[in-house]
Structures are given as C-alpha cells and as structure tokens.
Design a protein around this nucleic acid. Structure first.
Length: 396
DNA sequence: TAACCTTTGAAGGAG
DNA sequence: CTCCTTCAAAGGTTA
C-alpha cells in the first residue's frame, strides 16, 4: 500500500522498551503534573536538526522571513544549509526529525537528504489543498505591496498538525492491519486500530505518547508561531448538522459516541480479522481469546476499567461516561493508587493519563489484565449494562 | 472530484 | 475550568 513505510523511524529502536517513564518523570510540570515541554537543551538529543533537514524546507516563499522577530529560517539561495539556530546539530540525528518533518519540506535533496522519504510531511506544498484563493484578498489584485505581502504570508506552506500518539500508532500499524485483514476501508481499519490501541499495554502506549510529545516539541521548535488554529478551515467543513454531543443527548445513549455511523457497520465486517489485540502487536490474527497472551492470574478486578479505558482519560463524553462508571474500581486499582494525584488534580482527567506521572513501577507492575474480558465489545457491553445511576463518586 | 467515514489526541476558542 | 470544535492519517465509499 504505502510505497514507503511510514513511521519507519518509530520502530522500536527509537525506544527503550519499558523505560519511557524513567526519562519522562523529570519533565513533569510541577504545577499540573503533566509532562511539560522540555527545555530546549532537552530537545536536541531528540530532534537534532541536520543541515539536511533544514534544507528540506520547501520553497522560500517568504513565509520564512522572520515574522514577529522570530529567528527563523533564512534561506540561502542554494537552500538550507545552516542548522536551525535554536537547535543543536547532532550526529545522532533523530530520524524522526528527518522523516517526519522534513521529507517534503524540500525540493529533492541534492545530496540525498531524506533517506526515508516518508510521505507524510508536516509541511505540505502550498499547492496542497489550499483555499482556491484568498478570500481576504482583493479579487482584482490591483494593489501590490500590502496585498502581495499578505499573499505571500498566506501562501506559506500548510503546516500540518503534529501527529498525536494515536495517529502515530495508526501510521505504524495500519499496514499490518490491512495486510492481515481483508478490509481496506480506512474507517474500518481505524476502528480496529482504535480498539487495539486501547488494548495496548501502558508501556506500549507510553512509547507513542512520548513520541507524540517529541513531535509536538519539535514542531513547536520548527514553527514557533504556528498554531493549530492556522489550519482551521483548511479542510472543507463537514456538513454535519448534529454535533456528537447533541446526538448523544437526543438519543440518551451515552455510548453512542460521536454520532457517527454505527460502528456495527464496520465492526461486523472486520470481525474476521479483528482481534482484541494484545500488547504484542503480533496478534493481528490471533484468535478472539487473548487470554493466553495476556493471561495474568492477578488483578482480575481492575480488568473492567482497564479494558474500557486502559490509559486515556479523555475528554470524550463516552470516555468520561465510562470513566465515571468505573471510577470507583479504577481509582481503587493499583494504577490509580500509584497516580494518587489523579483525584486531587481534576485537570488530569482532561487529558491522557500522563505516563510520567505514573510511577514507573506502576507501569511495569500493573500489566494490562485484559484477559478477563474476551473483547472490547464485551467490555463495552459490561459498561452499557450498568445504569448511570450506579455511578458512584469514588470516595477515599 | 471532494467530502464522508472512523479512530484518538491535541489545541484553541467560547461560555 | 469545562465543553465543544477542528484537524491530524488514510483510503474505500458515496454524492
């Protein structure tokens, strides 16, 4: 499918399996307990920019011209050769950097700069799906100076959002799932991936969270003035009348997440190849009984909550609902106990459970015990079977 | 041809 | 602070 394997650089050799928390902990924001952006000095080892990577920035359309006084990429006629000033060059060049953010930032590298050539740049050519014209600009285009300048600015390449943990995971695993399944629709594949994501072990998810964090760091370093808001409107607006929340309220079905097409449509189709997945990633075609893989005699009680919401305490309504349903057991679990800050810091609930906030020992000693529930669907069924009224506020 | 679908997570704006 | 919206990838499907 993909001529080039995306996320090549995200292979395990960039991780030290099982070690994420150890180097994450120092980056916890003392205030929030959330992993904070590292100091620039911390960044270089992860995202060292090679002359090549800088050189991969696309055409100097003028958007590189320092804006707001930021020191940025002054592009020599021959292309970028200088390192990004804010970042130290390092021989150990993170391939992440070169592959994720650079590939298409550059005209074909004269000296073979992007070995990976991974086709999923953060920056895409300005030609890509830009609004046909700049509405804000005068259609006549008679004036020049201010308009042109503005035009130049608006012509700046579309800087894409950095991929989040799940997106990174999807890129890495999609090919596998596609290969294992007969399915081809991305929507279906994504559903499978979503379930497998939840079945990943904490350690494995931590890898992707960490990667995503690094991506964001690098992204922010490369494009200090970029805002996610910049991309708003770049995509055609969806023509959905009903918002997910509205739908949920209307239906009263707290599990009917997102008001999207019934998952059944895809899930039923992918049944054949979808497996509850394990943390081994090699169980794409494993039977529907993951128990053998993850058989963990201990911790049967925490199974529900972990299965339903193994890691992410997202802001999604359904997720919160699930969390609420199981908050008691969840909070009484070992993981919860290890991250005692959870209860005292509500803000933590609004984002993925920061791995760095979890004691490394907890990450390592609380293996996902999904075995008790045969499948995510089963877990969901359990959740659905529990009336909301049963929600009890966890009391300590 | 372009939007939709589907997933999770991040970010930003509104209230 | 909470809630909501948008976008990120991807490719078959649909209008």
């Amino acid at each position: 499918m993909h001529p080039l394997t995306p996320l090549i650089t995200y292979s395990n050799d960039h991780f030290s399996p099982g070690s994420p928390p150890s180097h994450l902990s120092p980056e916890i924001d003392p205030k929030t307990g959330i992993p904070r952006p590292p100091h620039p000095s911390e960044l270089s080892p992860y995202y060292p920019l090679s002359p090549g990577t800088i050189g991969q920035i696309p055409h100097p359309l003028g958007w590189f011209v320092p804006q707001q006084g930021q020191p940025v990429y002054s592009i020599p006629p021959g292309g970028f050769r200088h390192s990004y000033p804010a970042l130290a060059m390092n021989a150990s060049m993170s391939s992440l950097m070169s592959s994720r953010f650079s590939p298409h930032m550059v005209p074909p590298p004269a000296h073979g700069l992007h070995p990976s050539g991974i086709p999923h740049p953060t920056i895409v050519s300005p030609i890509v799906k830009q609004e046909p014209t700049q509405p804000s600009l005068s259609p006549e285009g008679n004036s020049k100076t201010p308009v042109i300048v503005k035009k130049e600015e608006e012509k700046k390449p579309h800087i894409k959002k950095p991929l989040n943990a799940f997106m990174l995971y999807m890129k890495e695993m999609r090919a596998k799932v596609v290969a294992e399944c007969t399915l081809k629709e991305s929507a279906a594949i994504n559903q499978i991936l979503g379930r497998r994501w939840h079945s990943l072990s904490r350690e494995e998810q931590a890898k992707y969270y960490e990667l995503a964090r690094k991506e964001r760091q690098l992204h922010s370093q490369l494009y200090p003035t970029w805002s996610a808001r910049d991309n708003y409107g770049k995509k055609k607006k969806r023509k959905r009348e009903k918002q997910p929340q509205q739908q949920i309220q209307e239906t009263g079905n707290f599990v009917a997440s997102k008001n999207k097409k019934p998952c059944v449509q895809y899930l039923s189709a992918e049944k054949s190849c979808d497996s509850p997945a394990s943390s081994h990633g090699s169980m794409l075609d494993s039977p529907a009984t993951p128990s053998t893989a993850l058989a963990s005699p201990a911790a049967p009680a925490a199974t529900h909550s972990e299965q339903a919401q193994p890691l992410s305490l997202t802001t999604k309504p359904e997720a919160r609902a699930q969390l609420s349903l199981h908050s008691a057991s969840f909070l009484s679990s070992k993981a919860a106990a290890s991250s005692s800050g959870l209860t005292s810091q509500p803000s933590l609930l609004s984002r993925p459970l920061p791995f760095s906030s979890i004691a490394p020992t907890a990450l390592l000693t609380t293996p996902p015990s999904f075995a008790a529930i045969p499948s995510p669907q089963a877990a969901l069924a359990v959740l659905q079977a529990q009336p909301l009224s049963l929600v009890t506020k966890p009391t300590d």
